[in-house]
Structure formats: structure tokens, C-alpha cells
């Protein structure tokens, strides 16, 4: 069953890192519906330095999105990926 998923990724703040990430979406056949990128310096959390936070909305089955998440986690410059509940979920 296809539904919307929100993935939040913390990336090392390095040139080309967004390309690495979007390349996985392209390669694995996912369409990015919405993307938001922010340097974590603007989040006011001192535990997050030299990082970029990317929030992405994609559609797909749960299994497909789990696979996508694992592929993203394989990127060396990706520090962490988590899924947050999409609208309408608990």
C-alpha cells in the first residue's frame, strides 16, 4: 500500500552531499515530493555541528521506504536517517 512518508536525515555539511542523497532517490526510483534543507547551525542545538538536516517527503510502500532508508544510511556522509509519522498517523 502506497502512502506518504517523511524521512529526516542528518548529513555531514560537505559539498556534494545533497547530490549523493538525491542520487539514491533517482537510482532506486523514488520521486521526491517535498524537500527542505537547513544548516543545523540555524536549529539552535549545540549538539549538532557541521551538519545539514534534510527533510524529505516521498510516497511508497512501507517496505520500499524501509529499503530506501537503509540505502540512504549506507551513504558515508549520512549520519542518521529517521522516519517521522506523516500527517494522519499516530
Amino acid at each position: 500500500m502506497t502512502s506518504k512518508h517523511i524521512l529526516v536525515a542528518l548529513l555531514e555539511d560537505k559539498p556534494g552531499v545533497l547530490n549523493r542523497m538525491s542520487s539514491v532517490f533517482r537510482r532506486r526510483g523514488f520521486n521526491i515530493e517535498n524537500v527542505n534543507v537547513i544548516d543545523t547551525i540555524n536549529l539552535g542545538d549545540s549538539s549538532l555541528t557541521n551538519l545539514t538536516r534534510v527533510t524529505i517527503v516521498v510516497s511508497g510502500s512501507k517496505a520500499m521506504v524501509t529499503q530506501l532508508k537503509r540505502q540512504l544510511e549506507k551513504i558515508i556522509d549520512v549520519v542518521k536517517v529517521s522516519e517521522i509519522p506523516a500527517e494522519g498517523e499516530a
Binding site: A63, T66, Q67, R70, Q71, E73, K74
Partner: peptide, 8 residues
């Protein structure tokens, strides 16, 4: 060793 291979 590669989590992305599990269940692929």
C-alpha cells in the same frame, strides 16, 4: 554485514 541487503 550490509543492512540494505536484508529483505531486499
Amino acid at each position: 554485514i550490509d543492512p540494505a541487503e536484508i529483505g531486499k
